[in-house]
Structures are given as C-alpha cells and as structure tokens.
Nucleic acid binder design. Structure first.
Length: 295
DNA sequence: AAGAGGCCCAACCGCTCGTGG
DNA sequence: TCCACGAGCGGTTGGGCCTCT
C-alpha cells in the first residue's frame, strides 16, 4: 500500500496562486470533484492530486465559512470532540460551512488551551463537552449550565441545517429504530460529481424530487468525513439512505471518548451509539448524567 | 523603530481504508 | 483472495502576520 506515487517529483509545493486556484476551480466546475488524479494532468497544474483535493476541500469549495467561530459552533465542537474524539471529519459533518482542517486548527489553537485552563482550575476529572464534571459550582448549577450550552449548540446546528432544508428537520428527535435525518449525510457535493455540478449552477432550492433523487441515487464515490459537509449555498443534508450508514463513531463499549483516537476507522456497526448521541444532543430533557451513563 | 517570540492558518506528510482488477 | 491504486483522514509543520518588549 505505500504512498501514492503522485507526490514524489516535479510537483509544486507551497501556497497556491490565484491562477492555480482559478484553474482548479474551473476544472471542478466543469467536471465535478473526484478523480483527483486526473486534475493535474487535465489542468496543467504542477500539483499532486492530493494537493488539489486539499485545496478544493479546504479552500475553494463553495459554502465554506471563514473567520471566527461562533460561541455555538465552539460549544458544539467541544461537545462533539468529547464524544467522538479527534475525528475532525466526523465533527465537521455536524458543522456545515466548516472544514475539518478549520475545526482541527481551531481546536488545537483555541479550545485545547481553554479546556486546559478549565480543567486546570478543576480537578482534572473526566470532562464531557470539555467541561469538568466536578466544577466548583454545585452540580445543579453546573448541569444547568451544560444544558444551556447544549441547547445553544443544538440551536446552532438546527439553524445551520434548517437554513438549508427545513422540511427535513420537522421532527428532530431521533427514532429509536435507527438513524435520524439530523445525522451527517454522506452524499454531498464535495464527493459527488452530480452535486457539485448542480451546486455550481447556483441552485439554491431543491425540489423534493431532486432531493429524493440524491438519496435514491446514492453516491458511490462518497465516503465520509469532510465529504459529508454541506455547503451554505443550497446544499443541505438530505434523507439518509441505508447505504449511507457509514458515519464514523465510537463503539458503545468505549466509555472514554479520547480512547477513540487512532482506533480502527471501520464503519459503525450499529446505530445504537448514534441514536444515543443524537438523543443526548437533541433531547432537552435528557439529563447529562443519564446520557453519560448511557455512553 | 526593530528584533524576538508567539499565534495562526494553509499545506504537506504518512498512514489507513475502500475498491476494482 | 490478493494486490495495486486512488482517496480520505489526522497529525504536523512552514512561514506569514501580529504583538510585545
């Protein structure tokens, strides 16, 4: 398996120029993302395929929001990181408009520091959502605070998603029988030629038929992670096909979130965890401790 | 004003996974 | 079943910019 042979020799490295960006964007607009290996050859870019993909995914892709993270986004990241570990692509799938790279950077630069401060002031106990579970305030106070944080995060997430497809979020409560619509969707423009073509045509509204088409059509090239991120210019999460049940998530057995780091990235075997997670994330009435117990 | 140090982001590297032959 | 290859992910780093002294 080794490294791809594309990054060896004769490839340009370093910052991208405007011309290169233009060439890449034009190519993707015409052909859609994917088949990155063909990009350098067809555009004349002296970049390796990986570099092209990265540039597109993290910078050129439409719908990327740049700049400061909002409080809600920050909290959502903290909570998701506590649950999923350093699975930035998975976390990014819950944050439309943000790339995994952005989230990763933001975590490493800002949040890690913040959490260290928080935990440093506490007893360093296991935290959920980055908040010490043994804070100096009373448990009730602390729980309320956490609930408020979660509610804000949920609101931000809901807004982000509903901006793009309100109809799909009518019932946000996850169904116990399986996966809900609030989950990250694995079919997205970033990995779908069809979607990117549509997206670049500036479509902002999709008919139910088109949405159904996307779901039914599936996307053989879609995988997970950053590719699941929808843009803010019209692409939105859609109904989830069974085949899309590939979200990366820790297994139920793992009780310590950070143990998830570096573990096998195989597809999740059961919707159980996701269901629980979403229950926790979206159910105002679920006490944090209960959720933690369940996890 | 200028140098040092820190911060931040874009990009790269190396590994793993998925898929097709 | 095995192997090769393309794609994706997470960790790390280079270097520009900003702040402090």
């Amino acid at each position: 398996m080794g490294r791809p042979p594309c990054c060896d020799k004769g490839v340009k490295k370093g910052p991208w120029t405007q011309e290169e960006d233009l060439a890449l964007a034009s190519y993707v607009k015409e052909h859609g993302p994917g088949n990155w290996r063909a990009v350098p050859a067809n555009t004349g870019l002296m970049r390796c395929s990986k570099s092209c993909r990265l540039r597109w995914t993290n910078y050129l892709r439409p719908g990327i929001k740049r700049g400061n993270f909002t409080d809600q986004e920050e909290r959502l990241i903290v909570h998701l990181q506590a649950l999923l570990g350093n699975r930035w692509a998975a976390i990014a799938s819950y944050l439309p408009e943000r790339t995994d790279n952005d989230i990763k950077n933001y975590w490493n630069i800002h949040l890690k520091k913040k959490l260290r401060t928080i935990q440093g002031s506490g007893d360093g106990a296991t935290s959920i959502g980055g908040l010490s579970r043994c804070p100096p305030v009373s448990k009730d106070q602390w729980e309320k605070r956490v609930q408020a944080d979660i509610r804000m995060a949920k609101q931000a997430l809901t807004e982000a998603l509903s901006l793009q497809k309100p109809s799909c979020l009518g019932d946000r409560k996850p169904q116990s029988s399986g996966f809900s619509l609030t989950a990250p969707i694995t079919t997205t423009y970033a990995s779908s030629t069809e979607n990117i073509s549509r997206l670049l045509q500036g479509w902002t509204k999709r008919s139910p038929a088109a949405q159904a088409d996307m779901v039914a059509g599936g996307d053989s090239t879609s995988t997970e992670g950053s590719a699941t991120v929808a843009s803010n210019d019209g692409v939105s999460p859609v109904g989830l096909p069974d085949s899309a049940f590939k979200i990366e998530a820790p297994t139920r057995e793992a009780s310590e979130p950070n143990l998830f780091q570096g573990e096998n990235k195989s597809a999740m075997e059961t919707p159980f965890f996701i269901s629980l997670f979403e229950t926790w994330l979206f159910d105002d009435s679920m006490p944090l401790d209960d959720a933690a117990e369940l996890l």
